[in-house]
C-alpha cells in the first residue's frame, strides 16, 4: 500500500514536470502547427539562468522567498527573450514553407543552444541549490510527499489555471484561439498574427523557465544536455493528449508520468519507458487524434 501511494506521488510529480514543459509544445503547435524542438533547450536555459541569478543575488544577501521569486522572475524574463528571439531567427523566415523545414531548423537550433551553453558555461554537471524555502504545511505531508514535489505539483496547477484564464478571458487569449482555429480568417478579422505567435513563444518559454527552476531545485543538479530527454518526453505527452490542446497536454503528461512510475514500480525500471511508449501506441491506435484532440474531418 505504501509502495502504491509513493508511486502515485512519484507519477503525479513526474507528470506535473512533463506538463510544465508540454504546455510550451502544445501552445506553439496549436498556433502554427510546428513541433518546437528547441523548447527543451529553453527549459535548460531557464534552469541555468535561474541558477546564475540565484548565485549573483545570493551574493548580494537575498534569500528565502525573495530570492526564489526574483530568480524565477528573471529566469522567466530571459527565457521569454530567448523564446522570442528563437522564433524570429529560426521560424519566422520559414512561415508558409513545407512543415518539415521549420522542424529541421528547430533541430539545428536545439543543437546550437546545447553547445552554446556548454561552451559559454561548462560541460560539467553543476550543483543546484535548494531554493525552495520550507513550506508551512509540509509537515502534514512529510510522510507522503517532499517539499519539492509539493512545490512542483502546486506550480503546475497554478500555471494551468493561469493559462486557462488567460486563454479564456483576455483579448490575446481570444486572438490565440482565433489563430489556432483559422489563421487566414483571424488575419482578415484584424488579428496581428505576428504578435500572437510571438506571445505564444513567450508564454511557453515562461512555463519552461518555471519548470527549469523547480526541477533544478528538486534534482539539485543541471547540465547543458538535460533539456533533451525532458523535452522528448514532454513532446510525447503533448501528442498523447492531443497536440494543440492545453488540457490535453496536462492529461497526456499525467498519463505518461503515472505509467512510467507504475511500470517502474510493478514491472521493472528497465522497461519503464517501454511500457510508456507501448501505452502511447495503443492509445493513439484507438484514438488517432490524441485523447483530447478533436477528430478533424477532411472535406474534399
Amino acid at each position: 500500500m505504501e509502495l502504491f501511494l509513493n508511486l502515485c506521488v512519484s507519477g503525479l510529480t513526474k507528470g506535473s514536470i512533463y506538463a510544465l514543459i508540454a504546455l510550451g509544445y502544445t501552445m506553439v503547435y496549436g498556433i502554427i502547427a510546428l513541433i518546437n524542438f528547441a523548447h527543451g533547450e529553453i527549459y535548460m536555459i531557464g534552469a541555468f539562468t535561474a541558477l546564475i541569478f540565484s548565485m549573483a543575488l545570493g551574493a548580494l544577501g537575498l534569500s528565502g522567498w525573495g530570492l526564489l521569486l526574483a530568480c524565477g522572475l528573471l529566469a522567466a524574463v530571459y527565457c521569454a527573450m530567448y523564446g522570442w528571439t528563437l522564433e524570429k531567427i529560426a521560424y519566422k523566415p520559414l512561415r508558409g514553407q513545407s512543415r518539415l523545414a521549420p522542424l529541421i531548423s528547430a533541430i539545428g537550433m536545439s543543437i546550437f543552444l546545447q553547445n552554446y551553453v556548454q561552451l559559454v558555461q561548462t560541460p560539467n554537471f553543476l550543483a543546484y541549490p535548494d531554493l525552495i524555502p520550507p513550506l508551512p504545511f509540509a509537515g502534514a505531508l512529510s510522510g507522503v510527499a517532499t517539499k519539492s514535489q509539493v512545490a512542483i505539483v502546486a506550480a503546475t496547477a497554478l500555471s494551468m489555471i493561469a493559462l486557462t484564464l488567460f486563454i479564456k478571458r483576455t483579448r490575446m487569449g481570444l486572438a490565440m484561439r482565433a489563430v489556432s482555429q483559422d489563421p487566414t480568417m483571424a488575419r482578415l478579422s484584424g488579428v496581428n498574427i505576428d504578435r500572437v505567435i510571438s506571445s505564444t513563444f513567450v508564454i511557453g518559454s515562461v512555463f519552461a523557465a518555471v519548470g527549469g527552476l523547480l526541477i533544478g531545485c528538486a534534482t539539485r543538479q543541471i547540465d547543458s544536455y538535460q533539456g533533451f530527454l525532458a523535452g522528448m518526453k514532454a513532446f510525447t505527452a503533448a501528442v498523447l493528449g492531443g497536440i494543440g490542446s492545453v488540457p490535453g497536454a496536462v492529461i497526456g503528461s499525467l498519463i505518461l508520468g503515472f505509467s512510467e512510475s507504475f511500470a517502474a514500480g510493478y514491472v521493472s525500471s528497465d522497461y519503464e519507458d517501454v511500457v510508456a511508449f507501448v501505452l502511447l501506441i495503443l492509445i493513439l491506435t484507438l484514438r488517432p487524434d490524441g485523447i483530447m484532440g478533436s477528430a478533424t474531418t477532411q472535406k474534399v
Binding site: L3, N6, L7, K14, Q149, A230, G265, D270
Partner: peptide, 20 residues
C-alpha cells in the same frame, strides 16, 4: 536490481521501490 534512466527528471519510482 533496477536501472534508472540517466538524466531523467526524477528517480522517485525507483526510490519508492528501494524503500519498499
Amino acid at each position: 536490481v533496477e536501472g534508472v534512466t540517466s538524466g531523467q527528471v526524477s528517480y522517485d519510482a525507483v526510490v519508492a521501490k528501494v524503500k519498499d
